[in-house]
Nucleic acid binder design. Structure first.
Lengths: 119, 119
DNA sequence: GATTGACCTGGAGTGCGCTCCAGGTGGGAT
DNA sequence: ATCCCACCTGGAGCGCACTCCAGGTCAATC
């Protein structure tokens, strides 16, 4: 049963130590274990959960929604249908983001093409 | 030579009137014309430029960078190569955004699949 | 035994991009 | 004439997601 120091978790997840503390404070991360000196020791499970948060965050999920998701996870297996619904809704939003980005990218390509024609 | 009232521009561009004033204030939009009563009357050109801003903004370009672009546009035709460079750099960033989003989306799909298997 | 460095806490501060507000003007409908 | 409504200005305020700070603990190294 391996544990991770803050520095290791920063390295693995890409979250800063301040962000890790912040996430714990607001309840996105359940109270992390401590050693005798009161320093955080993250479990494998914590690190896995942070991977999920990383993914949701990077796809633009607001913290308030991640918090709802965290609460569902904590509430037990009977919330699995709700979690699926939440992730499916988010998935739709990610798809929309991608589509919109691709659409706007065409405009940028046009613009570049126009400027090239002006040279 | 048609002009647009603030309400019309809000309608067409999707920017709020406060945002339009803000963009003018920070120089993202050149000083907009006024009627006798001091009210804004946007030109066709203003509206076109706002369309460009809309696109850059929606693809995540920070205001500071849009400002640099605006300055290049104002500086005249000799800045066209710089504008191309700026837009190409942005285009790369948009591509990266899309790729990253698509990558993360796979994780979300996996997660949904996993939850489905738990039902 | 002094220093260094990784970590701790609570709380204040930051940067971005707006958004809102108070107080006022002018033009058109009732 | 009076009302409303769209608009004006300068400046304050806000929400989000961190990020930084002061002051402190502990363990290990020189």
């Amino acid at each position: 049963m391996s544990v991770y120091t803050p520095a290791e978790v920063v390295e693995e997840t890409g979250f800063s130590i301040d962000t890790l503390r912040y996430y714990e404070k607001i309840g996105l991360l359940e109270r992390v274990g401590r050693n005798a000196a009161g320093q955080r020791r993250f479990s494998q499970e914590d690190v896995g959960w942070l991977g999920t948060l990383r993914c949701l965050r990077d796809t633009g999920m607001p913290i308030a929604k991640m918090l709802r998701f965290a609460e569902l996870v904590r509430a037990g297996d009977h919330t699995i249908p709700d979690r699926i619904r939440l992730l499916e809704e988010h998935d739709r939003q990610v798809r929309e983001q991608i589509d919109k980005l691709a659409e706007r990218q065409k405009y940028i390509h046009n613009k570049i093409g126009y400027y090239r024609s002006q040279l």
